[in-house]
Amino acid sequence: MLELLKIDVRKYVYSKVFWVMLAVYFALLVLFFFGVEKFVNEALKNASDSSPVSMPAFSIYAFPYVWHNLAFLGGFLKIFLALIILYFITSEFTYNTIRQNIMNGMSRNSFIVSKLLFVVMLSLFSALVLLFSGFVLGMLHTEEITWALMVQKSGFIAAYFLEVFTFGVMAMLLGFLIRKPTLSIGALAVYYYIAEPIISATLPERVAQYLPVEAMGNLIDIPNTALMKMFGVNFRNYVSLQDGIACVVYSVIFILLIFLIYRRKDL
């Protein structure tokens, strides 16, 4: 396993494209995390001005809410992470290096595992950025910091990891199926932004909530803010087990599909 990771890392660590993409993703995440309060505060202020009741002062960065808030935000950028995954998986087909890897003595399954490790590493990276950003922001914006407050709701980091990982595995499946960079990126975007929303609209809610992208999105529900509460909407502020299970099941199905397809496929 470690050997496979080492081989895979060798393929990216000297690639300029990889570092540029990762840096852009990192910058976007950090910008999102650190910049959002300004935006939300502005909105709150406007709402407060026009509202008869005064809004309580409330930082979205305070422990323990920061985990939920950032995890929710980070979810919007998972498409970018999928881009990195697709770019590097399809490049193995573009340059046919997957063939040479297999000829050199890597088994087909090992190759797939090495790419899975790549998805795990990127998802971990994303979750770590969330962890550090949340930690820094929480420290700066919480009045009375206690351990209990800090770790409370930190389960959202795990849920975030699962969300990003499941999406990454879905991208991986598309990469292995389509093999062409632009086509597979296009297919993912079309499914994510167009196809699933349409399918979802035609299905009853209790079924639609289990479509892959919806299930991933449901994992971390919209955070409750004072604003939301004011409008009388109350979102889930916990991770539901059944959404978690749905994501795990999807990940397992996607991974098994790749293994199954590549048992008999020509490279």
Binding site: E3, K6, K11, Y14, S15, K16, Y95, N101, N104
Partner: peptide, 18 residues
């Protein structure tokens, strides 16, 4: 069939690793 952005040595090291 090699990784275009890697040098000959780095490409061969991947072969050796595999």
């Amino acid at each position: 069939l090699f990784y275009p952005y890697l040098s000959a040595v780095k490409n061969l090291k991947i072969v050796a690793d595999i």
